[in-house]
Write a protein that binds this DNA or RNA. Structure first.
Length: 638
DNA sequence: CGTATTTGACCTGCGC
DNA sequence: GCGCAGGTCAAATACG
């Protein structure tokens, strides 16, 4: 709405400019020897007809701002007194004014069209949002009454729309696929863990999100315990079965001895860690086999009980690439920067799970629409389960892939899209599977559309994210987060040393020219740590005081709990917002868009899981234009 | 002094 | 059962 308001204001200014232009022309004519023809012409252009009689008879200025008055007596006098040269000059001025007016008029028309389009988009989005809410509500009612007898808590909405999968069936096939495709790039990433991955927006207490998380729970539990209503999703409390998740509790979903799905993000990042919108505390570091760079272990500190952890490691082959692996589910609301990523990663997880649910998922090559905020911001990653009914705009991330290991599904998002042609993402991601045969997996190769495809909707997630977080205190949180990262830019000495050494070595050699300006711009934005702050500032400017979290911005973890509580209170005080934020509805949720390259399985289950979002298309990997157009078309479908 | 990071020890899971 | 590797814990250390 703020954008629209801005457009309206801008349009109003332009209209005012037009009026002023006409008025100035009228004054010019009135003050000199302007002919009545020109005056009429001007008036007609402006949509106002000035008849001859008015021009000749009226001696009083009209009260109407659009009416151009020419004193007759004065005009007659000027005809006699002003020379031809002066008349020509004024005619020239008149012509220039006409031209200016025409230009302004054209611009005005363009702005009108833009405004109409924005209004239409907004209306569409709003309708879509309400539709999602309605369907979520309906689903909650249905599942609570039939499928979830154990859930006594009304807050718990159980929805099986996402991730009811059975990966087991594909394990062998996946292994075979992986062994063929492996090349060693992801050797650093451990792909052994399985189960559910859900990071980000989805709070456990949130009904739909809880449901979604259960839906996203691991293949084993679903396949083997399909009849059991509650699917535990948390692995840290081992072997405990989920009973009921209560709203507002710090409890996390518990699950059996199942491992969680992981989402691995590969991104070129010159900072120690990706600014993913959360606050992390490092609790360990290990030298992983085959990689000189140590792997850092972080846990989320936004909430004391938050089980989400991540692993950060530089890629052995290319130390400019930072591999961040997320695991777990946030039990707290997330800032907008993190929320913007939630839908993307959840889409990736959903992709994995939907694929896994299929019995014929050998070697699926698919593209997953990724929130452009990932590519443009690289600041936030959340794994929130999505409502199957939501159909947010889709964005494509180059070189992203989903790889399901043997009972250890891993989603890999490759954001290192600078040189898609240099190495196939398929081969790149398959390497780890050969090196770790026990983790054989099917590599879901996402389309490697160039980053240019992200351009058209670059800020779309922020728009959506803001709509879902307008009471969230996003500004303060983001700024706080930025300050935190800046102040805690420390890095493991070895890792930093290795990386800095690498950067120094490649500083002169890695600056190969970009072939596409857009791609260069996208990369620049992605690598710019200040981009988030700019976006946050922009959002703040739109929202004003969006929430009560306008406190210290540069404080780190110390005040995070306070802010978290504020968010919790704020969100829970507003169930609608809270729900939407938890579902990622308002965060530019992205959905899977399976592309046709070697798509072996039609993914009936995937379609079932994402009836409205999953699309089959024939986009090619290198077709940035087609991807962009697809993005636009998807946006229109909202 | 409080908090975050470091780092060695310990635990766990998997393969042989 | 043993060894390896990943992952976690917690005391020590660093930092503001």
């Amino acid at each position: 709405m703020e954008n629209k308001t801005s457009e309206i204001s801008f349009l109003g200014n332009m209209q005012d400019r037009e009026v002023r232009t006409v008025e100035s022309v009228g004054k010019l004519e009135a003050g000199s020897s302007g002919s009545t023809e020109m005056i009429n012409k001007l008036a007609e252009v402006h949509g106002k007809h000035i008849d001859q009689e008015d021009q000749e008879n009226s001696s009083m200025p009209s009260s109407s701002p659009s009416r151009i008055q020419v004193p007759c007596a004065m005009e007659k006098n000027t005809k006699d007194e002003i020379s031809n040269s002066a008349r020509r000059n004024q005619e020239e001025l008149l012509k220039s004014a006409e031209a200016e007016m025409d230009e302004v008029k054209g611009e005005n028309e363009r702005l009108k069209l833009l405004l109409a389009r924005i209004a239409k988009d907004y209306q569409t989005l709003q309708m879509h949002f309400f539709d999602i809410l309605q369907q979520e509500k309906t689903r909650y009612t249905d599942t609570a009454s039939s499928n979830q007898p154990k859930d006594q808590e009304p807050e718990v909405l159980i929805s099986l729309s996402l991730g009811i999968t059975s990966i087991d069936q594909e394990v062998g096939k996946d292994e075979k696929k992986n062994s063929n495709l492996s090349n060693g790039r992801l050797e650093n990433e451990k792909l052994s863990s399985t189960g559910e991955l859900s990071l980000g927006l989805d709070c456990i207490s949130e009904p739909s999100s809880t449901e979604n998380m259960r839906n996203a729970s691991s293949k084993n539990s679903i396949a083997q315990e399909l009849k059991e209503d509650q699917q535990p999703t948390e692995i840290w409390p081992p072997n405990k079965l989920l009973k009921t998740v209560r709203s507002g509790d710090d409890e996390v979903l518990e699950q059996g001895p199942l491992k969680k799905t992981r989402v691995s993000v590969r991104a070129r990042c010159d900072t120690p860690t990706l600014n993913d919108g959360c606050q992390w505390r490092k609790y360990g570091q290990k030298i992983a086999k085959g990689n000189p760079c140590p792997r850092g272990y972080y846990r989320c500190t936004v909430s004391p009980s938050c089980p989400v952890r991540k692993q950060v490691q530089r890629c052995a082959d290319d130390m400019s690439i930072l591999i961040t692996t997320y695991e777990g589910t946030h039990d707290h609301p997330l800032p907008i920067s993190a929320a913007a990523m939630a839908s993307t990663t959840s889409a990736a997880v959903s992709m994995l799970q939907s694929r896994s649910s299929s019995s014929t998922g050998i070697g699926i090559s698919a593209s997953v629409p990724i929130s452009s905020s990932i590519a443009t911001n690289l600041h936030g990653f959340n794994f929130s389960t999505l409502s199957q009914t939501s159909r947010p705009p889709q964005f494509y991330i180059p070189n992203s892939s989903i790889s399901t290991s043997n009972s250890h599904p891993t989603v890999t998002l490759d954001l290192t899209s600078t040189a898609p042609s240099t190495s196939s993402p398929l081969g790149r991601f398959s390497s780890s599977f050969s090196s770790t045969p026990r983790y054989s997996a099917t590599c879901l190769n996402f389309s490697s559309s160039s980053s240019a495809s992200l351009e058209p909707n670059a800020l779309q997630p922020f728009w959506h994210g803001y709509t879902g977080y307008n009471n969230y205190g996003t500004s303060a949180y983001n700024q706080n987060h930025i300050g935190y990262l800046n102040s805690t830019g420390k890095q493991p000495a070895l890792q930093e040393h290795l990386f800095q050494t690498y950067m120094n070595m490649n500083q002169n050699t890695s600056q190969q020219p970009f072939k596409e300006t857009i791609e260069a711009a996208t990369k620049a934005i992605a690598s710019n740590p200040n981009f988030q702050s700019v976006v946050a500032a922009a959002l703040t400017s739109y929202t004003g005081d969006g929430g009560g979290n306008s406190g210290d911005q540069n404080q780190g973890v110390g005040n995070s709990s306070c802010q978290k509580m504020n968010w919790d209170e704020s969100l829970r005080a507003n169930p609608l917002i809270y729900q939407s934020s938890q579902n990622g509805i308002g965060c530019g949720s992205s959905f899977l868009n399976i592309k046709s390259s070697s798509l072996n399985s039609p993914q009936q289950s995937g379609l079932t899981l994402f009836p409205t979002s999953l699309q089959l298309s024939a986009a090619t990997k290198s077709s940035a234009a087609s991807a962009a157009s697809a993005d636009n078309s998807d946006l229109l479908k909202l």
